[in-house]
Design a protein around this nucleic acid. Structure first.
Length: 209
DNA sequence: CGTGAGATTTCCT
DNA sequence: GGAAATCTCACGT
């Protein structure tokens, strides 16, 4: 319940790893030693090959270099002039695949998350629900920015540990959110009964048992 | 509650 | 120069 998942966990097909990540616990230890944790509720897969929506689809650049590196690293990118989003790098080195973390269920460090997001710990019910239910929201709550690009998830400060994972037939699946091309790929995966999704679990279908 | 505009910087063509 | 793996707030119903 505390050791990081091994690197081999990340070293597979990006869609397999994405589904395997649901229910696992994302943990960040802040410089002062306090601990933030959330259960992964929603993810999306992005692949170098055949995926026009992926940052890596046109090859390696300075920005996406981490995607092409070792599996189990954190790829953090900056977008829309103000937001950071984080991904888990998968697959063998040289393969630009990664899983975007889209939503977490808050587990530990709620007051710190609230301060990171809203500058106070007294927040409305709506703000409470919105703490971690989006890729840029959870980065803000966890204090993740460009300085953490390339961080090793098999290390200490940021890691993913084993959690209460859903049974494979209980994984929701839909097209990805906020992309132009590539919407025909159903590469968004989520825990259907979760109250912490970035968008309602529309387009759900169950995987085969 | 749903819709739509604006924010604001980086990256790549 | 334009688009971007987004979010928040204002406004209308």
């Amino acid at each position: 319940m505390d050791a990081p998942l091994p690197r081999s966990f990340y070293d597979g097909n990006v869609c397999d790893v994405a589904q395997r990540l649901l229910g696992q616990v994302f943990i960040r230890i802040l410089p002062d030693g306090s601990r933030l944790a959330g259960r992964i509720a929603e993810v999306e897969a992005y692949a170098q090959d055949g995926d026009p929506a992926s940052h890596s689809c046109r090859g390696r650049t300075e920005r996406n270099a981490v995607m092409f590196g070792e599996a189990g690293r954190l790829y953090v990118y900056f977008t829309y002039g103000m937001h950071f989003c984080c991904n888990v790098v998968t697959g063998p080195e040289g393969q630009g695949d990664a899983v975007l973390i889209r939503a977490l269920e808050p587990l530990e460090g709620r007051d710190i998350m609230a301060r990171h997001r809203y500058g106070r710990t007294l927040i409305t019910e709506r703000e409470e629900r919105n703490l971690l239910n989006g890729p840029a929201k959870l980065c803000k709550a966890f204090g993740i920015d460009r300085k953490m690009n390339g961080c090793d998830l098999c290390g200490e400060t940021v890691r993913i540990v084993s959690g209460n994972t859903p049974r494979p037939p209980h994984i929701g699946r839909s097209s990805r959110i906020g992309i132009g091309s590539g919407s025909e790929l159903a590469w968004r995966f989520f825990i259907p009964e979760s109250d912490w999704l970035s968008k309602p679990g529309k387009g759900i279908f169950r995987n085969e048992p």
